[in-house]
Nucleic acid binder design. Structure first.
Length: 284
DNA sequence: AGTGGCCCCTGGCGGC
DNA sequence: TGCCGCCAGGGGCCAC
């Protein structure tokens, strides 16, 4: 499940492999629903002939900026990946869209077909609904605290909400909460300033480690392809994710697994006690 | 306003 | 061994 560190790794790989400057000469669409808009026919005719001028990331979106004021936004959802290759090989059964380039080709690979692309001259109409970038300096501890406490939602659900903060998915949300020592069901409005500050710091540390490790490969059938093969070695750094029943690396208590917001959620019941307001304690 | 249910998909895996 | 049914999981949408 590509999250911020995996998309960032892909972005950096595509740049170092020389995708910017390449021209899209041809499009083959094998699964039409991979193209969210415009229609597959318009998509092909509008994108053909354009040169890639830049590659950005916003949350879990990768944006290929194209000459002539167009952007290709790609969301990889669960199993999507993008492979930039100079070899002409037969399409894999899971290749959904192949862009022929003036040199090489760019393959959108997506086993479970959840990924989506949008070709648009107004990417902001899609990206504006995303919350702040975790590493953006405009996301100050004060702003994070006010966003956290101005509503009452369980922390896990809030961290997964791309409108609250952009780029966290199930893996890095669980790992951030573990690092911060916060129970996933903690209501967001009970955190004090220092707990909020710690959570923001932990989110940044967990994501930064993920990027330095070139992302997380779980090796369980999810494709998660970066352009230079599978994603990186961050699985070795995971403390609680998919470790239910195994000892907490900090205190050795068994890691628990619960469902929160329809997502499996992993935490240490000892290191991540549930905080509540004093008034709510009294009523229990 | 916040949460839960359901949907989209398919490979992998547990159960028998 | 083989087959069936269940599950994960990001995000959109709808109901409560």
């Amino acid at each position: 499940m590509p999250e911020l560190p995996e998309i960032e790794t892909l972005r950096r790989d595509l740049i170092s492999l020389g995708l910017p400057g390449r021209r899209i000469t041809d499009v083959r669409i094998f699964w039409e629903r991979s193209i969210q808009s415009p229609s597959p026919g318009d998509f092909s005719s509008l994108i053909r002939g354009r040169r890639v001028s830049g590659i950005r990331r916003r949350g879990k979106y990768l944006a290929l900026d194209l000459e002539g004021n167009m952007s290709l936004l790609i969301h990889f959802r669960m199993t999507g990946g993008l492979i930039f290759t100079d070899k002409e090989t037969d399409p894999d059964p899971h290749d959904r869209v192949i862009f022929g380039l003036d040199e090489g080709s760019l393959v959108f690979h997506d086993t479970r077909k959840f990924g989506r692309m949008v070709l648009t001259d107004e990417p902001e109409t899609i990206l504006h609904s995303l919350g702040p970038e975790p590493f953006d300096s405009s996301l100050t501890p004060e702003l994070f605290f006010s966003r956290l406490t101005s509503r009452k939602r369980v922390l896990k659900a809030l961290l997964l909400d791309q409108g609250f903060i952009a780029g966290l998915g199930n893996i890095y949300a669980d790992e951030s909460l573990f690092a911060a020592g916060l129970h996933p069901l903690t209501p967001s409005n009970v955190l004090d300033r220092s707990e909020s500050e710690k959570l923001l710091r932990c989110i940044r540390e967990v994501l930064d480690r993920g990027i330095r490790n070139r992302g997380t490969s779980l090796g369980d059938g999810e494709s998660n392809f970066s352009s230079s093969g599978r994603y990186g070695r961050n699985a070795d750094s995971l403390q609680v994710f998919r470790r239910a029943g195994k000892p907490c690396p900090r205190c050795a208590a068994p890691v628990e697994r619960i469902i929160v917001a329809q997502r499996s959620t992993h935490f240490c019941p000892v290191c991540q006690p549930l905080l509540m307001k004093a008034s709510e304690h009294a009523t229990l």
